[in-house]
């Protein structure tokens, strides 16, 4: 199954790399986005959006939905970082607590000085 998905991903990547050569070149004046959308934005941005800055007009007005997703992704990234790091901390705490409990049991069962010494050392830590 793993091999199968790896092969599918490799084929898809190969197709992607092949199709890149079919894309219009960067800065090509005859490409579709440069011949319809961009001149419209440049001519009508200030009239439509009321902002003399074309970048802001495009980012926040013409492409407002895209920016909404960007903001959501930002928020999700922050939340995920918090959750991952906090969850890791909790597991660590749990493991430490289990170790403590084990050492207590050892202390009770084994009367030898050695185990006590070790558990004391762990407790000090």
């Amino acid at each position: 199954m793993k091999k199968m998905s790896a092969i599918i991903i490799a084929v898809a990547l190969g197709l992607l790399c092949l199709s890149i050569s079919c894309l219009p070149k960067i800065g090509d004046p005859n490409s579709a986005p440069n011949s319809y959308v961009t001149p419209y934005y440049i001519e009508n941005s200030q009239k439509d959006t009321g902002s003399p800055n074309i970048v802001t007009g495009t980012l926040a007005d013409y492409r407002g939905f895209d920016t909404l997703e960007e903001t959501t992704v930002m928020f999700l990234a922050g939340m995920t970082a918090m959750l991952i790091i906090k969850a890791g901390k909790k597991e660590k705490n749990k493991a430490a607590a289990e170790q403590d409990a084990e050492s207590v049991v050892q202390e009770k069962s084994a009367a030898g000085d050695k185990t006590e010494m070790i558990s004391e050392k762990e407790a000090e830590k």
């Binding site: 439509d48 959006t49 922050g78």
Partner: peptide
């Protein structure tokens, strides 16, 4: 167009708050 500018300002405030707090959060 001024209403547009106001709307842009409102969403920029939202974006600012999110970016600032995400940096602090991480």
């Amino acid at each position: 167009a001024e209403v547009h500018a106001l709307g842009i300002l409102m969403i920029e405030i939202g974006v600012t708050l999110t970016v600032m707090m995400t940096i602090i959060d991480i």
